[in-house]
Each structure stands twice: as C-alpha cells, then as structure tokens.
C-alpha cells in the first residue's frame, strides 16, 4: 500500500508542577475534529494535561481515547473531572460530556487564554473547515464565519496536495520556501481544479517545491479573502493544524501585513482548551 503522507503526529503532555488532588475544580474539554481529536484537562483553570490524536472512524471512541491519553500517567481518572464540554465537528459524540458548545465559541475562549486577552482576530484552519473569528477582551465572539462547505483553505485541501506531490504534510511549509523566487499562486480556488492545474505545472517542469509554494500562496490568499469579510484587528492569531504550516502562515501575515502572535501552548488545542474553560464557568454557574 502506498505510504500516506498527510497524517499529523500524535502526542500528549502533562504538567509536572500541579497537584491535582488539592481540591481545585477539575474540568475537561474534548474537541473531536474531522482529522484529529484533542482533550484538555484544567485544574483550577490551570492547564494540567492535554493530548492530540487521530480521529478514528468511531468518534465516541476517539473522544474516550484522547481523554484517556491525556490522563495517562497522571493518576487522575475521568471520575475526578467535574464537568466536561464537548466541541468540534464530532461534539455530539463525546459520551462523557455534560454539554456541547460550538467550536467557534470554544476557539475564541481558548485563544483568549493561550495568547492573552489582547487577541481580537482568530483564524482557525482545521482539517475540514476554516473559521475566522473576531472576539472581545473576554474571548466573547463578536463576528465570525465558518467555511466547512469547500475544501479550499482547509487542511484537507493541503493534504490532497501533499498526497499528490508525495511530501509529508509536516514538511510542506518549510519546502515552500526552497524556491528561487515566489511563483504566482495556483489560480483555481477549487481543490479539484487546483490539483489538475498543479499536475500541469509539474508536467511543465516545475520543481515540486515551486508547486508547493504556489499552493501555499493560493491557500493564504484564499483565507485572507475569508478574513476580509469579518475584518482583521490586532492582535491576530492562527490556530488549528495549518498553524504549524509556516508556508501558509507566513504568507498570510505578509498579505495582511500583520504578524501573528506566538504561544508557548500547542495551537491545535485551542478548541479543547476553550471547551474546558467553558466547562469551568458552567460548573461554577451550576448550569
């Protein structure tokens, strides 16, 4: 069987400094995305543990697995978690969730903690959708759009290209800078047509990296056009799987003329983190 080039890595993390058994409220968030699922556990609002793994064909199972993996080696079990919020594309399939909340709301809330309350614009580029969100200093959504209709501008679109060019998806961003000069972007928005266009460019003798650059640039252009609808205001952050693709991220920053904020956290956990934060607010409110 052909090697699959488009899978993201799986990982987990736990805090070494937090004693979870100190009576502080423990809440959880699970973001079941189309490609990967993340689980986050907070102790008294502090990040305690998280995980990210592939979403299998069975969403409820993926939710359970990702939470178990986040808790691995912590001594904590699901019973210790007071309130869990499910979010993401498969949010209705989190069997142990007390409530489900849209990923738009969760991303804004998560980014507010991850990047600080100066964040006003969030671009989340997931596996199967692209969200542009404006929020206030509390992480409350003030304007948003979500594009899950069209694969252009989503991780899936990039995966199609990584596959076509037989390049591991983690390398796509770096490789897109190994070009003598920046090529014009692939002109078709539609991924199906862009793929045909790219095949033509390869036949014309373009180097793989040049084609990658042309697609990263097209993708950047595409998401900037989505951002224009909601308007971009400082500070600006990019989350989701594509946030790891420097080829797209740097081109977006260049096109809109605003640098993206960095974070010590993993950008992919924004949704799950927001869900866990909402879980805390809701638990405290007794909702």
């Amino acid at each position: 069987m052909a090697k699959e080039f488009w899978r993201w890595k799986e990982y987990n993390w736990k805090s070494e400094n937090i004693n979870w058994n100190n009576g502080a409220i423990i809440t959880g968030g699970v973001d079941v995305g189309s490609v990967s699922s993340q689980a986050v556990v907070l102790v008294g609002g502090e990040l305690f543990a998280y995980s990210s793994m592939r979403t299998g064909s069975d969403s409820p199972m993926s939710a359970v697995n990702s939470m178990n993996w986040a808790l691995e080696g912590t001594g904590m079990t699901l019973e210790n978690i007071k309130y869990v919020v499910g979010t993401g594309y498969g949010r209705v399939n989190v069997p142990f969730a007390n409530k489900t909340i849209t990923e738009i709301a969760c991303h804004a809330r998560g980014a507010n903690l991850m990047y600080g309350n100066s964040v006003r614009t969030i671009l989340d580029m997931g596996g199967q959708d692209c969200k542009a969100i404006r929020c206030d200093e509390k992480g409350k959504v003030t304007n948003f759009l979500m594009n899950d209709k069209c694969a252009a501008g989503t991780g899936r679109g990039m995966e199609v290209f990584a596959d076509l060019l037989s390049v591991p998806i983690e390398d796509v961003g770096e490789l897109s800078f190994y070009v003598e000069e920046e090529p014009p972007p692939v002109s078709s928005t539609c991924v199906v047509f862009a793929k045909t266009e790219a095949t033509g460019l390869l036949r014309e003798g373009w180097h793989k990296n040049k084609v990658i650059a042309a697609y990263c640039s097209a993708m950047a252009h595409r998401v900037v056009s989505l951002l224009e609808r909601i308007g971009v205001e400082d500070d600006f952050v990019i989350t989701g799987g594509i946030a790891k693709n420097v080829g797209v991220v740097r081109r977006i920053a260049k096109e809109i003329g605003i640098k993206t904020l960095e974070t010590e956290y993993d950008s992919q956990i924004a949704g799950a983190l927001g869900a866990a934060l909402f879980a805390r607010s809701l638990a405290e409110k007794g909702k």
Partner: peptide, 13 residues
C-alpha cells in the same frame, strides 16, 4: 455579534 452563515467557494460568496 455578526453571524455569517454560509460559505465562499470558487464560484462566489
């Protein structure tokens, strides 16, 4: 809040 329901594809907004 401004809620934009819908999408943009190759053929328009």
């Amino acid at each position: 809040m401004i809620a934009n329901f819908g999408y943009k594809d190759g053929s328009g907004d």
